[in-house]
């Protein structure tokens, strides 16, 4: 029972430990948290996908 609860806790826990200070990337004068960098990366990915992926065809458009 206790083991099941512990494994459920592991599954439901945040993928990143939020109880400690965040990780930061330093690049010259640029300093950004890894979390924000991931979000920026996701935005770039979605942008590229939105430009490249075909849109479902609708009935007659002008």
């Amino acid at each position: 029972m206790a083991m099941a609860a512990a494994s459920a806790e592991r599954v439901l826990a945040a993928p990143v430990d939020l109880n400690h200070t965040g990780h930061y990337v330093h690049w010259g004068v640029v300093q950004i948290s890894v979390a924000n960098l991931v979000v920026v990366g996701l935005m770039v990915l979605v942008f590229v996908a939105a430009v490249l992926l075909p849109f479902p065809k609708g009935r007659g458009r002008r």
Binding site: F47, A49, A50, V51, L53, F55, K57, R61, R62
Partner: peptide, 14 residues
């Protein structure tokens, strides 16, 4: 009730 064909792109959805 109509839009130009070039609107059929994901980039216009945002």
């Amino acid at each position: 009730d109509t839009q130009p064909a070039y609107m059929a792109s994901w980039i216009y959805v945002f």
